[in-house]
């Protein structure tokens, strides 16, 4: 199950970053990247499609990465959230980790190997979470049926 393609959304207002990350993720055939240059557009996608990881830049015009990930968490709590930021200050990092349940706070410039390993774990976690929730609900269903049979 965890070997199915893993869908990663990247949002950064910089085209050079999104294009680069799309290429990087495509070198690893397991990832299926989708990129946006605006948080508002990315949020529409989060509402429509199931994702395994969401990578967001911090400072963007309009909605920033922090608010974007907060809303994404409401919509798809199972998708792992990563903040990839050039603005390195630990206070905002701690706030992000605590308030958005961040999977990882990564600073630019990043190391490709490290990022790929991170995304591997992040997406695996999301898929496992979803499997768990599927299993739990089918168990609930089974339990309901058994109860019905007993009564």
């Amino acid at each position: 199950m965890t070997n199915e393609s893993r869908r990663v959304l990247v949002v950064d207002d910089e085209d050079m970053v999104t294009r680069n990350l799309k290429m990087l993720l495509k070198t690893e055939t397991i990832f299926e990247p989708v990129t946006f240059n605006s948080a508002e557009q990315a949020l529409e996608y989060v509402k429509a499609e199931t994702l395994d990881a969401i990578v967001a830049d911090f400072i963007m015009p309009g909605m920033n990465g922090f608010d974007f990930l907060k809303q994404a968490k409401e919509i798809q709590p199972s998708a792992s959230r990563l903040l990839l930021t050039g603005y390195a200050d630990k206070e905002s990092a701690i706030r992000a980790i605590n308030e958005i349940g961040l999977f990882y706070y990564l600073e630019k410039p990043w190391d490709n190997d490290f990022l790929l390993t991170l995304l591997d774990r992040a997406t695996e976690r999301s898929q496992l979470l979803r499997q768990l929730s599927d299993t739990t609900s089918s168990l609930e269903e089974l339990r309901g049926q058994i109860l019905k049979m007993l009564i």
Binding site: E14, M16, V17, N20, L84, T85, Y87, P109, W110
Partner: peptide, 8 residues
């Protein structure tokens, strides 16, 4: 940091 990240 942003262009440098992309560059590296």
């Amino acid at each position: 940091h942003t262009p440098l990240g992309a560059l590296i």
